[in-house]
């Protein structure tokens, strides 16, 4: 699945929130087309790791490279890089004052300067793909959580990103809506999208991931294919974590 040079490379990344060492010398590389699932207990730094990749969280030391280019500082270059990395949030963060369709077309029209008609057409195709084309003219608050999250995925895909970051995309959803979001993500993964997914959905990690990253206390503890990780976790910390979540 992996071809050529890796798309995302983190090298000795450190980050502190005040005295808290949230990312402790984290190194990671994600190949093109690879699906990497990041799991770990809460407070382990996995969300922060995900957010450093498009510099929503700046880092204190180390380097992050995306598509062969070091992450630029704030400014036009960073905005361009962010337009190439899709991001899906736990709380959806759809623009509350815009319709679903406007949410999806805003980036293409304002950032990529696409013609509104062409952007709308592509947006409708994407909304159809995630199964909510009939909700296009509603406002986010009128949709269920699952529908909102699928709209958020469509909004990110509209930028035709080189990679997608998912920061706990199903954690804020009612249980019966988790499946519809994971279905969309699974189909994206099988289409060859490069994905970094922070999640607690072990089922998704098992069947859709190429690799599972286990984090604890800001450190990257394990990095293994899912079958290997779930069957034979090497570290005590991972064994402990899995025993807690897999017993119920």
């Amino acid at each position: 699945m992996t071809t050529g040079e890796p798309l995302i490379v983190l090298d000795s990344v450190n980050k502190w929130f005040g005295p808290l060492h949230v990312l402790d010398d984290v190194s990671l590389s994600v190949g093109r087309g690879e699906v990497v699932v990041v799991i770990g207990p809460s407070g382990s730094g996995k969300s922060t790791l995900c957010r450093t990749i498009n510099r929503l969280e700046p880092i204190n030391s180390g380097t992050i490279t995306f598509d062969g280019q070091a992450l630029p500082a704030e400014g036009k270059a960073l905005a361009k890089l962010r337009s190439e990395v899709g991001m899906v949030f736990q709380s959806f963060n759809l623009f509350a004052h815009k319709t679903i369709l406007e949410n999806v077309t805003l980036g293409p029209v304002k950032v990529r300067k696409e013609k509104p008609a062409a952007a709308r057409e592509r947006a409708m195709t994407l909304l159809d793909r995630v199964g909510i084309a009939n909700q296009a003219d509603k406002f986010p608050a009128q949709l269920s959580g699952g529908q909102q999250q699928r709209a958020a995925i469509a909004r990110a895909l509209a930028m035709q990103p080189k990679a997608m970051l998912f920061d706990e995309p199903t954690s804020a959803l009612d249980p019966e809506m988790v499946g519809e979001v994971l279905d969309v993500m699974t189909s994206l993964a099988s289409d060859g999208m490069t994905m970094v997914v922070v999640t607690h959905e072990m089922g998704f990690a098992r069947h859709a991931a190429n690799r599972v990253i286990f984090m604890a206390d800001g450190q990257l503890v394990e990095d293994a294919p899912p079958a290997e990780f779930f069957a034979n976790p090497r570290s005590e910390r991972a064994k402990d974590f899995l025993s807690k979540i897999l017993t119920h």
Binding site: N54, L56, K76, A79, K80, L81, R82, S83, E84, V85, G86, M87, F89, S91, N93, L94, F95, A96, L106, G107, K110, V111, A152, R155, A156, M159
Partner: peptide
């Protein structure tokens, strides 16, 4: 909510946009 601006930045919108 801060998430609104974060989502906008993630799409590549500049500060002014």
């Amino acid at each position: 909510p801060a998430g609104q601006a974060e989502a906008a930045r993630s799409l590549g919108l500049t500060f002014g946009q």
